[in-house]
Design a protein around this nucleic acid. Structure first.
Lengths: 149, 149
DNA sequence: TATTTATTGTTGCACACGCAACTATAGCGC
DNA sequence: GCGCTATAGTTGCGTGTGCAACAATAAATA
């Protein structure tokens, strides 16, 4: 029973660490992306996800999953980006309920401007987190996940 | 240069994995805690943090850090919990700017009711994440962080 | 002591979010 | 073909959030 309780506590602690690191990184990304490219983190996530998609288009629901957002939030997120002409909605031919989104040249350009900012901030945030004893082990573990790639 | 670019991409991918897992877990916790204890995740985080604090009181700023929230959001978060009589504000004697927060008996009771829900949901969410190829490596790495405890 | 500067917490405001209800299209059974 | 259920996306509404400006107290400096 002691062993079982330990497992619970270890999970809880792992979750707290994960949440803390996530909060720290997201806050820094939010600031720098907002300052350098007028993009929020989710907005950047959308542009980035679209750019890494074959053919550069995704359905609303895919975007919702990629951003961990609700359907309604995704609609408005796409609205904002479309109003700024960073992407366009494209009606789906075979399934007339579906809507594809696709980056515009402006969207690609802004993404290419924002990506180095994103990457540099991420590197800096991880370095800072490295200094926090609580977070350091997770920071170390992170690059090992996809090291083989 | 190829090596350096790889490091950037590995970091980005690690961050995407971290964000995805965080989003998945938080969404499930949000639902179950709301349903079973009328608590949001941050609200639970506050109660939990207070319960694990010596003397059971923390300053606003500590809470802000523990929840990765802004100062203003923390003020209102404490307002909500205080209105529900789950915690109380206590003026700091030595530093009259500071304000301590302390769990009430109701707060402790609700936390004790919510904690098993939280822990069970966390276990379930991690098990689900385990099934997602993208997330599995991180799920595996998580308990190793504090395994020695 | 008087003045300036830093720190702690709160409030006005605009905005992004989730939930529930809605419309429109697709797919299935008869 | 006709209904029924499921799915895709949008909109109304209430609420939680961050930023900037603020008040109150502490600490530093002269």
């Amino acid at each position: 029973m002691g062993i079982k309780d330990d497992a619970v506590e270890v999970r809880a602690q792992g979750w707290r660490t994960l949440a803390a690191l996530h909060g720290l990184i997201e806050a820094e990304l939010e600031r720098s992306l907002q300052a350098e490219a007028q993009l929020s983190v989710v907005e950047y996530t959308v542009l980035d996800a679209l750019s890494r998609q074959d053919g550069w288009h995704m359905r609303m629901q895919q975007l919702a999953r990629a951003t961990a957002l609700s359907a309604s939030a995704t609609t408005r997120l796409v609205n904002r980006l479309e109003e700024r002409a960073l992407l366009t909605r494209i009606l789906c031919a075979d399934d007339r309920r579906g809507i594809y989104t696709e980056l515009t040249p402006s969207g690609i350009a802004l993404l290419e401007q924002a990506r180095p900012v994103h990457d540099a901030t991420l590197e800096r945030a991880l370095a800072e987190a490295q200094e926090v004893p609580e977070l350091a082990p997770l920071v170390d573990a992170l690059p090992r996940l996809h090291a083989g790639v």
